[in-house]
């Protein structure tokens, strides 16, 4: 019970801090002061109190997009260990459910975008579903590496104590897996170099252009959901890099939170030092990552 409570508290409480940290890091690189760390909290709070305007063209599908965007990361988070705090829900084969759960939110985000009838949103939806197609096998291959190393098919064990020994026995494979999952975090959360979360109307946008017509509480739910998605996927990378455990729940929580903030800083650095890729290069990079994850698997199979 404490585990579930701590899990939800971390997820719901800490996740909006990550975009704040990323923003601050980027501001630091650009020599600006930047918005405060807690900016995302203010934004979400303010949006929840605002009114709503919806397009005449839309139907219930348009409202379902934000709902699923919020629900899916929460449910997915319950299957992921946060640091050495074990996952509240864990069963053999939950990694398949985990991947398809994100498919559900993608299905509705894309449908909601097309529901507005605008070609901007259509463009974003087409890009999102295409790039996700290429990112999904990468996730599976990375998970398989961990499943082979831990001998289990549940995320809790795969990202559990077995990682300590795995780093010694299969270090090179795990380094590749970390790189691949980091790319997945970037592409799934619409970060530079795949997508730019700061601009709306560029024709090269993916996620931001899909949510162009959402407003008020709905948009707040989207922002909150996006922050939680970053948190959940980021937690996987952080756990891989810091597999240890101190034995004390509170220390572990602190260690994990520190890891998450560090991840946010790293994402901020990547965003500040790289340019956005040309759209046609994105699939190539994703296929490259796919091959990398496959290579890490081959290293293990030999």
């Amino acid at each position: 019970m404490l585990q579930l409570f701590l899990h939800l508290l971390l997820l719901l409480g800490l996740s909006p801090l990550l975009p704040g940290v990323i923003g601050k890091t980027k501001a630091l690189f650009a020599g600006r002061t930047g918005p405060p760390f807690l900016q995302s909290y203010y934004d979400i709070w303010k949006l929840f109190g605002k009114g709503l305007v919806i397009s005449r063209t839309t139907t219930w599908v348009f409202r379902a997009g934000p709902v699923l965007g919020l629900v899916v990361p929460v449910l997915a988070a319950l299957m992921v260990p946060f640091g050495s705090i074990g996952a509240p829900i864990s069963f053999a084969g939950d990694l398949i459910f985990f991947v398809y759960l994100f498919g559900l939110s993608r299905f509705f985000t894309a449908s909601a975008a097309l529901d507005t009838g605008s070609s901007f949103e259509g463009m974003g939806a087409a890009r999102e579903v295409t790039f996700a197609c290429l990112a999904e096998p990468t996730v599976f291959f990375s998970f398989i590496v961990l499943a082979r190393l831990s001998g289990s098919l549940s995320l809790d064990v795969m990202f559990g104590q077995a990682l300590n020994t795995a780093w010694q026995s299969a270090g090179p494979s795990l380094i590749l897996v970390v790189a691949c999952l980091f790319v997945v975090v970037l592409v799934e959360n619409c970060r530079i170099p795949f997508d730019d979360p700061n601009t709306h109307l560029e024709l090269t946008m993916i996620h931001e252009v899909m949510v162009l017509d959402h407003s008020g509480p709905d948009f707040g739910m989207i922002l909150y959901g996006a922050a939680m998605k970053l948190f959940v996927l980021g937690a996987l990378v952080v756990r891989l890099v810091f597999p240890g455990s101190t034995g004390n729940v509170w220390f572990d929580t602190l260690l994990f939170s520190g890891g998450m903030l560090l991840l946010a800083v790293v994402i901020g650095v990547v965003e500040s030092t790289m340019a956005r890729l040309r759209l046609l290069r994105v699939p190539q990079l994703l296929v490259g990552t796919l091959l990398l994850s496959f290579f890490s698997l081959i290293l293990l199979l030999r």
Binding site: A110, S111, L114, D115, G117, C133
Partner: peptide
């Protein structure tokens, strides 16, 4: 199989998005 799964989502959001949604 994961690639196929991703493409099914493309096909289905296409049918829903183009036939049911929009103007």
């Amino acid at each position: 199989l994961a690639l196929v799964g991703g493409m099914v989502i493309i096909v289905m959001t296409r049918i829903i998005g183009i036939a049911l949604a929009g103007e």
